[in-house]
Simulated scan of single mutants.
Amino acid sequence: MEERKYLTTWKRYIPVIRLHLKKSLNEEQSFKLNITDFESAGDRGKSGYTFNLSMENGKVINNISGSAVARDLYEALKADEAIKAFLQDRSIKISVGKSFLLTIKTTHVSSYKTETSQE
């Protein structure tokens, strides 16, 4: 397991991510990350920095074990109280593509789950 080398980098982005998370309630949000911030933290080489991070109620629902960048982002998100509160009752997908564009898409937790629990 790698030591959290991207955590400091992500913590610098937390205020921007917090802002975009709020805006993502209305529409998908994207903003460009600074590639040199991540390259100076650790070289991912050919594997790159791309990842998908899917969360429901603040818990990761996809496998991010192979991506130190995604794991460290999740740690940074959990450490921020405002973001932690925002993640509750929501389904959020955060992804970073090859062009270093971070995209945030937020939906409320799937309705079928609440419907089935009421039966």
Rank of each mutant, 00 (worst) to 15 (best):
M1F: 05
E2W: 11
E3F: 12
E3V: 06
R4Y: 13
K5W: 08
L7V: 10
L7F: 14
T8W: 12
T8N: 13
W10F: 10
W10Q: 04
W10D: 05
K11F: 07
R12Y: 11
R12S: 15
I14A: 04
P15Q: 11
V16D: 02
I17R: 05
R18D: 12
R18Y: 10
H20D: 10
H20W: 04
L21W: 01
K22V: 03
K23L: 14
K23T: 00
L25F: 11
L25Y: 07
E27H: 09
S30Q: 02
S30P: 00
S30L: 01
S30V: 00
K32E: 15
L33W: 02
N34G: 04
N34L: 15
N34H: 11
T36G: 00
D37F: 02
D37G: 00
F38C: 02
E39K: 09
S40N: 15
S40D: 13
G42Q: 12
G42S: 13
R44E: 15
R44L: 10
G45N: 09
S47R: 12
T50L: 13
F51M: 08
N52R: 07
L53H: 05
E56L: 06
G58L: 04
N62I: 13
I64M: 08
I64N: 03
S65Q: 09
S65T: 13
S67Y: 04
A68M: 07
V69H: 01
A70I: 06
A70F: 03
L73R: 00
E75V: 12
A76Y: 04
A76P: 07
A76N: 06
L77N: 03
K78A: 07
A79K: 10
A79Q: 15
D80W: 14
D80M: 07
A82I: 14
F86V: 07
F86H: 02
L87T: 13
L87N: 00
R90A: 09
S91P: 00
S91Y: 11
S91W: 04
I92E: 03
I92T: 06
K93C: 00
S95P: 00
S95W: 01
V96H: 00
V96Y: 01
V96M: 09
V96A: 07
S99L: 11
L101F: 00
I104Y: 00
K105C: 01
K105R: 05
T107A: 07
T107N: 14
H108C: 03
S110K: 10
S110A: 13
S110W: 13
T114C: 08
T114I: 12
E115P: 04
T116S: 08
T116K: 13
S117D: 11
S117P: 04
S117M: 12
Q118W: 11
Q118R: 14
Q118M: 12
E119Q: 09
E119V: 08
